[in-house]
């Protein structure tokens, strides 16, 4: 008798804890869902192909999607403020082709690499200033960034340019091995950017201001937070990430190509949303977005394993995006009903 009441008491306490956890971390639930989907995807692929979850495929997953991870970090910050950055794909193309062209012209990598990253940041700065100081909607301002980046990429070169620079190629060809696992400097770069981003979002005032702006910009301003600086800075960061992604993609493909990254902004937005960030702003996690990218990458890998058309990737990502937003919508509606 007393034992069973104790058991009940413990169970109640556990469920009480669970409820507190859920109420405190309700915003993390979509990210957990993304993680679950990622795991299920891996398990499903493992069962179907017999050999999928191997150190080799998983290592390749990070390698193939390093540039997306970097872009997703900047995009998450922008989206959490309630904005959007359509320019990332073409900024990546512009910085990538510039990198290849400048190296080809004989400039040393130590100058070229910081140069192109800063160039990406400058386009981000332009977008941020338009958004913050001229009240331009993020969609339109970053559209200007998209046009600018894409056009400049073609101004630099209409054709693809091969990269012969050892330093840049080193980023891709070096493999640090741990048994069958390996990681490239580009992969390390992506992970460092992601961890740094997650730290900034969670443990700095700048990061918390990003959330505050996304929650209620007017409030954030009246609370005396540095709203203007924060909003400009997230676009600059997104631009810097675009520059970095340009470097990584150029290293990855061994060449710069002005048509790179057409539509990549959509892949990134999709990955970020799948990772649990709400496009309305205020909620989202960098690590969630990384999971979103991995889900995206896994789908791509699975499709190439199946030997199916790559066009299926976007169809499936589209459908997955759909199911995610429908589920998010249901959660929001239910939360509204409860109030």
């Amino acid at each position: 008798m007393s034992q069973s009441t104790m058991a009940i008491g413990r169970r109640e306490r556990v469920s009480e804890h669970a409820r507190t956890f859920v109420s405190r971390h309700a915003s993390m639930m979509p990210t957990f869902a993304a993680l679950l989907i990622f795991v299920l995807l891996l398990i499903g692929a493992q069962i179907h192909f017999g050999e999928f979850v191997t150190p080799r495929t998983l290592s390749a997953l990070l390698l193939d999607n390093a540039y997306l991870v970097i872009l997703a970090v900047g995009m998450t910050m922008v989206i959490v403020t309630g904005g959007i950055d359509l320019s990332v794909g073409s900024v990546m193309a512009f910085t990538g082709i510039s990198c290849a062209a400048l190296l080809d012209a004989g400039y040393p990598a130590v100058l070229v690499v910081p140069g192109i990253v800063v160039a990406g940041g400058l386009i981000g700065l332009l977008v941020g200033v338009l958004v913050q100081y001229f009240d331009v909607q993020p969609f339109i301002a970053s559209l200007a960034g998209l046009f600018l980046g894409r056009g400049l990429a073609f101004v630099v070169s209409l054709k693809s340019i091969r990269v012969e620079d050892d330093a840049v190629l080193w980023l891709q060809t070096t493999r640090y091995r741990f048994g069958d696992w390996y990681i490239t400097p580009t992969g390390i770069l992506a992970l460092v950017v992601a961890l740094l981003g997650a730290f900034v979002m969670q443990y700095t005032r700048f990061g918390r201001t990003i959330y505050a702006v996304g929650g209620n910009e007017q409030s954030a301003r009246l609370m005396g937070l540095a709203v203007a600086r924060t909003k400009v800075l997230v676009y600059v960061i997104s631009g810097l990430c675009g520059g970095l992604a340009g470097l990584v993609l150029t290293a990855y493909s061994g060449a710069g190509y002005p048509r790179n990254g057409i539509g990549t902004e959509l892949d990134v937005i999709a990955a970020v949303v799948i990772g649990g960030t709400l496009l309305t702003g205020g909620t989202g996690y960098i690590l969630g977005s990384v999971i979103g990218v991995l889900v995206y990458g896994t789908i791509k890998t699975v499709i190439s394993y199946m030997g199916a058309e790559q066009s299926w990737t976007r169809i499936i990502v589209g459908l997955m995006l759909l199911s995610f937003i429908v589920v998010q919508r249901v959660i929001v509606v239910r939360a509204e009903r409860r109030r």
Partner: peptide, 21 residues
Amino acid sequence: EIQPIIATLVLMLAGRGVALL
């Protein structure tokens, strides 16, 4: 009642894939 940007993003992503098929 899904945000228009995301709702139409679905078809933007999937549509070209369908056209290719």
